[in-house]
């Protein structure tokens, strides 16, 4: 069990015997990624949990806007065998929906709420996936979708600072000492309310 290659083989055996795997990727010596159909996710996670991968470390989504798909990534960890297992499954980008894995890993509750907030994925089976968690009073499309423009949102919602005077020295031949004096005078005026020190 100490040899990392044997560990990877063990994981491959466990997963490929359970469900049809579309693609296997060795991320590194301690991490394996399996791409499977979304209908097999619950089965493979149950199998992994009973084989020792009992900790759900993370769950999130990736937006593949060119394929018009969301990819869900479940990351599970085993405290006996040091291998992370990623379980990936693609779902439709239009009306995205995935059955919750709450009965298998109760800790996924908040990850699913996060994924719903940032990608708009629905998780039937999770009783409060639709509640707000991180963003409050959000009024636009979910912000981690690739077609969301954060700069336009920021420009629309938050006032930008306008600078009345430009103190930057553009031309080095120009006397910067004047600018510096001007800047210091302004700073002093702000500090003392216009009175001389």
């Amino acid at each position: 069990m100490t040899n990392s290659m044997n560990n990877l083989e063990l994981v491959k055996k466990v997963v490929t015997e359970a469900v049809p795997v579309l693609k296997i990727e060795e991320v590194d010596k301690q991490q394996l990624a399996f791409e499977i159909d979304k209908r097999d996710v619950h089965h493979v996670l149950t199998v992994l949990k009973t084989s020792g991968w009992k900790q759900l470390s993370y769950m999130s989504a990736v937006d593949w806007i060119d394929e018009n798909k969301f990819e869900l990534v479940y990351l599970v960890f085993n405290w006996e065998v040091p291998v992370y297992v990623q379980v990936r499954a693609k779902i439709d980008r239009v009306n995205p929906e995935m059955d919750s894995i709450l009965p298998i890993f109760p800790g996924v509750k908040y990850y699913e709420r996060e994924a719903h907030e940032f990608f708009g994925i629905a998780f039937p089976g999770n009783p409060d996936y639709h509640k707000q968690l991180i963003l409050e009073e959000w009024d636009d499309i979910p912000p981690l979708r690739k077609d969301f423009d954060p700069e336009a949102y920021s420009d629309r919602k938050f006032p930008k600072r306008e600078y009345p005077a430009d103190f930057s020295v553009v031309d080095p031949k120009n006397k910067s000492i004047e600018k510096r004096k001007e800047r210091k005078a302004r700073a002093n005026a702000l500090r003392t309310g216009g009175k001389e020190q």
């Binding site: 954060p150 949102y153 920021s154 930008k160």
Partner: peptide, 18 residues
């Protein structure tokens, strides 16, 4: 003051004195 490196973020305000 002006948003700094987060000037284009959807989650961070740009000017506190507003």
């Amino acid at each position: 003051i002006n948003g700094g490196i987060y000037h284009d973020s959807h989650a961070v305000i740009n000017q506190l004195d507003q």
